[in-house]
């Protein structure tokens, strides 16, 4: 008990101010003492704001880089207020961190939900490409079953991307007839699909 007390007394004898001034005069080990003395409080403060060990680690590091640069440049003049000063630097860096994150929102993935399972780059993956190919083949086979005049109009419109005016010119029928054939082609396709319970999904 007595020993512990004497250690505490020793600790309080060496003040932050004297460690800071020793460090500014070139005593590198004084910085180690300052960090050891305050690391838990500063790190816990940062962590309590960001809730991420890696981010807290980065901010803690940046905080002390600022401290080191300021002290080495001899710009520190808040004698006796070392910890509040460091805490203020940490606080400002935490704010900077959140500002930066607001501009570029980050999504935190965890075991239950991963954003990349929902988002994709829009390109079809191998499975979807295969399904798309199968659906298109099925549709082509169904079209072959249509009466020739309907099939002709549907192919020109859907596969050759022709307008109904062009179709009417090429087939020698009126636009209305071409439109009617297209309509019956679609109706017949639907009928066949329903009749045979064909599932065309992508």
């Amino acid at each position: 008990m007595f020993n512990l007390e004497s250690i505490d007394m020793k600790k309080s004898i060496v003040t932050d101010a004297s460690l800071v001034s020793a460090y500014m005069q070139g005593n590198e080990s004084a910085l180690g003492d300052l960090i050891t003395r305050h690391k838990q409080r500063i790190y816990s403060f940062i962590y309590s704001k960001v809730f991420d060990r890696d981010v807290a680690e980065d901010i803690f590091q940046d905080t002390f880089i600022k401290v080191i640069r300021t002290l080495k440049r001899g710009k520190y003049n808040e004698e006796g207020k070392f910890l509040p000063w460091v805490m203020r630097i940490a606080h400002n860096l935490v704010i900077d961190h959140f500002r930066k994150n607001n501009r570029m929102p980050k999504f935190e993935n965890n075991d239950d939900f991963n954003i990349f399972s929902v988002l994709s780059d829009g390109a079809l993956n191998a499975e979807k490409q295969l399904i798309k190919g199968q659906v298109e083949n099925d549709v082509r086979r169904l079209i072959q079953e249509l009466p020739v005049d309907q099939k002709e109009v549907l192919v020109m419109r859907m596969y050759k991307d022709m307008s109904f005016k062009e179709i009417s010119e090429q087939t020698g029928v009126s636009i209305n007839t071409a439109l009617g054939r297209m309509r019956y082609a679609l109706i017949n396709l639907r009928k066949v699909i329903d009749k045979h319970n064909i599932v065309l999904t992508n």
């Binding site: 910085l31 180690g32 960090i35 690391k39 838990q40 816990s44 680690e57």
Partner: peptide, 14 residues
């Protein structure tokens, strides 16, 4: 409550 930075972070700073 006893959260502390990694040893490597402190070594880097020193």
């Amino acid at each position: 409550k006893n959260l502390v930075p990694k040893g490597e972070t402190i070594k880097f700073l020193l």
